[in-house]
């Protein structure tokens, strides 16, 4: 019983997060401006990080968890650098 509950809820979460990734991808393709694409990339980072976490829960593996932690930290740096680039036209002044 509890195994069924866990497997179904984790499968549903994987499907929902995969769909969220697809929606963020559509926004990256549509645009219309650069800041939309940067924000879509940030959303994509978060959704993929959560997808890694859920998959790691399902497989019982800690390696996916480490990858999610790296994504959580690196996504912040990437988004900040891109926003800074949009602001000034250069990343390091």
């Amino acid at each position: 019983m509890s195994h069924t509950i866990l497997v179904w809820s984790l499968t549903y979460a994987q499907l929902a997060l995969a769909l969220a990734t697809c929606l963020a991808d559509i926004r990256i393709l549509k645009g219309p401006r650069a800041q939309d694409r940067v924000l879509a990339l940030d959303t994509l980072y978060i959704a993929v990080m959560l997808l890694f976490l859920v998959t790691g829960m399902r497989l019982g593996s800690i390696f996916l968890f480490e990858a999610a932690m790296v994504i959580a930290v690196m996504g912040f740096v990437a988004s900040i650098a891109l926003a800074k680039f949009l602001f000034r036209g250069e990343v390091i002044e």
């Binding site: 769909l19 969220a20 929606l23 926004r27 924000l39 959704a47 959560l50």
Partner: peptide, 10 residues
Amino acid sequence: LTLIGAWGFL
């Protein structure tokens, strides 16, 4: 909530 956020973002 992540799915709703992505849907609203689109």
